[in-house]
Design a protein around this nucleic acid. Sequence first.
DNA 1: CAATTTTATGTAAACGCTTACATTTAATAT
DNA 2: ATATTAAATGTAAGCGTTTACATAAAATTG
Lengths: 337, 337
Amino acid sequence: MATIVDVAKLAGVSTATVSRVINETGNVRTATKKKVLAAVKELNFSPNHSAQVLQTKQTKTIGMIFPDASSIYFYEIIRGIISHVNKHGFQIIIGSAHDEEEELKTAFRFLNGRSVDGLVVMAPSLTNGELFTLPINHNTPIVFISVPPIKAGTTSVVLDNFNSAYEMTEHLIRLGHKRIAFIHGSPNNYDSKRRYAGYLKSLKDNGISGSIEAEGNFTEDSGYKACQQLIKSKENPTAIFAANDAMAIGAIESAKDQKLKVPEDIAIVGFDDISTSQYITPALTTIRVPLYKMGQLVCKTLLHKIRSNPAEHLNAAERIVIPLDLVIRESCGAKIK
Amino acid sequence: MATIVDVAKLAGVSTATVSRVINETGNVRTATKKKVLAAVKELNFSPNHSAQVLQTKQTKTIGMIFPDASSIYFYEIIRGIISHVNKHGFQIIIGSAHDEEEELKTAFRFLNGRSVDGLVVMAPSLTNGELFTLPINHNTPIVFISVPPIKAGTTSVVLDNFNSAYEMTEHLIRLGHKRIAFIHGSPNNYDSKRRYAGYLKSLKDNGISGSIEAEGNFTEDSGYKACQQLIKSKENPTAIFAANDAMAIGAIESAKDQKLKVPEDIAIVGFDDISTSQYITPALTTIRVPLYKMGQLVCKTLLHKIRSNPAEHLNAAERIVIPLDLVIRESCGAKIK
DNA sequence: CAATTTTATGTAAACGCTTACATTTAATAT
DNA sequence: ATATTAAATGTAAGCGTTTACATAAAATTG
């Protein structure tokens, strides 16, 4: 690979001038500029990024730490981030971790070493306390996704899980259901917890005493099993609210396998509105989560932090709550086909 | 951020020794090692990646150039790559481009500047000729995905589109269909072209003269429109083979909207086996593409190239063809519910 | 125990760039 | 034409590492 020295030699100027030309900084006569550009082209020169970063400390890169690069759910967010980031000449680098404290720390160290300009951290299963122990470099702007409210100087973007789950539960109650079951997502998951809280509150506000619950972990399979168990149970729910669509889909399959009709015999609703939800029979009633937009918003927020005064963003805790919409389809029984 | 100099001072040794400790290269007494490690911990030191790269030329990073970071299709491949790459301590950096020559070149230059250790390039709409004009740094190992066969020194991984499409068409013919339509994917797309070629060949081998065709661009919407048009046409097909599942799903919706029963009135099949395909009614007959595994394979191949002798991989053209399986469900009419 | 070999550590150059500062050249004013 | 100011270019240090080479310390040998 050609270096800036090669270019300088070929163009008959100093490296400083070449640098000025390629970065469009400082004054340089058009004639010299031309010579330099010609040399750049001839040598197919591209500045060494590491050398630039070493010098300027500006990586034009934002790091992303995700619980697991495996889920479509996260990918939609990542897509949103990429789409926005590219417009601003930034790049992303993904350091995935499995939502365990130690792995997260490793990812942090890794990304700090790369001196990223900013960080997006999604760690839905981390508690407030754990979040505090992360080796955060406090000069690096960070935006958290789906975390509990944290005190000082952190910015986070979260879904309005509570209110949406509340609404969905109300919706089921209005349809006449009294025995509504909830299938939990992964233990400790913040989104799942808030959805559960909204469900509980609605039950309470409507004078329904006992909740019916089953464990799950966001997978279709866990939804299938949870539903099986729920149907057999003596609590005999007439509706099931799964903490996400994958589990709801599993639940629908399970109900079908047990010869129950959805929604006539049992209503089933989900959360997320993944692409399959509209195609399954019956079409799934759920809550639309604008993941792609969420990614863009996260990114916009981060870029703003990066550009703003460091002192400014240090003590500006910000919590952005994204409102969600109910999507009423068939699986809740509201629409008669 | 603490530097290696700070660590050296605190530990009372030279930077060289610190470097030896953190990289586990060269001999160092256990006592000194301990001191250094303690200092590293105390200062929460993490080596500056740019400085390391500048020195060693080893980025432990592989660059990925994708036509568009937007499709789930690509994401599955990316996931596969990430999963494999992480095991080997590598990271990835994504430079997306929209499959246009100029943008691709930019992405190449960008990644070359980052001096990546290897490159994965997916450019399904590029022709052989265009591929040749890319500013490839010939010391950087590259693996291409879904490209036409290229001559010298390139390695590529492709799907067995031709044979699978051939089989699928045979399958429809065996079910008694004579007027089988094909919905094309995006123009110039290599996968689509090969699928089309397989379809044509099968038609020919079975003595069916005229093909029936409609244009599409891989989106559900385009499949919907193509199907509409096909149904109205005087060629009156009894089966539709869409170049991917998204279009097939659009086609099924379209048929339903026109009061045609699938598969009784018209059989519809796809290609890819995306997750929705098994849930749609009727469940879609399609061809399973193991994207995730493909990603892993691509990555494995690339890592092997990176580690092998440069001279060796320069003239070793390799073309890996991934076999695909038919997934017979309901939409083709083979299974009576 | 001195001589030799082996092991551990230090010194300093180099990687490819940016940029403060110095110097030269051109433009403008007197 | 000369003095003054502004624009263009060059010089060289420094960013944080790694590593070849030099040196010092420890271990081994006869």
